[in-house]
């Protein structure tokens, strides 16, 4: 009889246990954030917490509505600025770029995704913020500055996922349109983009997720005021920056309030993720 190797006795169940790591991580994160945050929401009241206009931890007031508004405005701005550029870029890579050039552009976009977010924030602080202050007025540290930085930061996500979904289309689609005498652009607009719709949608949703979740870059350019902004040139605070700024010194109830902010963030992200995955699967 030959000796069985050790590995054979590693049962399938061990691999199963390892495979549960992702699920356990997700469960642990959700459970612990909720355990820490829910008591405060219960104490303040769900409605007061979400729609409360005043955030003053020293006075025991915890309303995050201005931050929800801040998050929405900064994100919408990022989408308006970033998505058209990203879509053009993905069409460029999938349809127009000469092979040599796309071989250069693809890693460059990958690199864009790898640059630390604090570097973007710093760059924004040096170039974008003064530019806004000088040409558009206001303090410069503003929703607009945050949107511009986030627009750059969501480019890689949106570009790579929509490019993949355009490239994944059957070549016959394109040939068929060309055969009917359509120009390249007509083919892209009326055949390829509609066919790749769900992938492009998913890329935009994931981009939104990235924008909603980004912290450090936004802290540096947003000004971080807790008041409800009245224009895009006003400073603001987002859900993430609220946590990022105050976690350093918060304790007790205040800290719980930051975890409660984390719950809201987590729920928003989960909804976005689930809809992105739904959009991808629907194909």
């Amino acid at each position: 009889m030959k000796l069985k190797k050790f590995g054979e006795r590693i049962p399938q169940s061990l691999f199963f246990l390892i495979a549960l790591s992702a699920l356990s991580a997700l469960a642990l994160i959700t459970i612990f954030i909720f355990i820490e945050g829910v008591p405060l929401i219960a104490k303040v009241g769900f409605f007061n917490f979400i729609f409360g206009m005043k955030w003053a931890p020293s006075l025991g007031q915890y309303g995050i509505f201005p931050m929800i508004v801040g998050t929405v405005l900064v994100t919408v701005g990022a989408v308006i600025i970033g998505v058209p550029i990203a879509l053009c870029c993905s069409i460029f890579l999938a349809e127009f770029a000469p092979r040599q050039l796309s071989m250069l552009v693809r890693p460059a976009i990958q690199l864009l995704a790898g640059i630390p977010s604090v570097v973007y924030g710093f760059w924004g602080l040096i170039f974008i913020v003064p530019a806004i202050r000088n040409y558009l007025g206001g303090p410069g540290l503003s929703i607009l500055a945050g949107s511009i930085i986030l627009a750059i930061m969501i480019l890689p996500t949106v570009i790579s996922i929509s490019e993949v979904s355009i490239l994944a289309l059957p070549p016959l689609l394109k040939e068929g349109a060309f055969a009917l005498g359509a120009t390249h652009w007509q083919t892209i607009r009326s055949v390829l983009l509609p066919a790749a719709k769900s992938g492009i949608l998913a890329s935009i949703i994931l981009g939104i997720g990235r924008a909603v979740g980004e912290t450090m870059a936004v802290i540096m350019v947003l000004g971080n005021a807790v008041a409800l902004p009245s224009s895009i040139l006003d400073p603001a605070r987002t859900l993430t920056t609220n946590i990022g700024i105050e976690m350093g010194y918060a304790s007790g109830e205040h800290q719980q309030a930051l975890f409660a902010t984390g719950i809201v963030l987590l729920v928003i992200i989960m909804i976005l993720n689930a809809s992105a995955q739904y959009a991808i699967r629907r194909k």
Binding site: A22, L23, L28, I33, E36, V212, G213, F259, L265, M270
Partner: peptide, 29 residues
């Protein structure tokens, strides 16, 4: 499906939330 869904969800969680979790779970708990 559940395992893949978990992994994809983890990928989307903002890093600040990882920070909150890591703080309460590893640092404190």
């Amino acid at each position: 499906k559940i395992i893949r869904f978990s992994a994809e969800s983890l990928a989307g969680i903002p890093s600040i939330v990882y920070g909150l979790f890591g703080f309460i779970f590893f640092v404190i708990y």
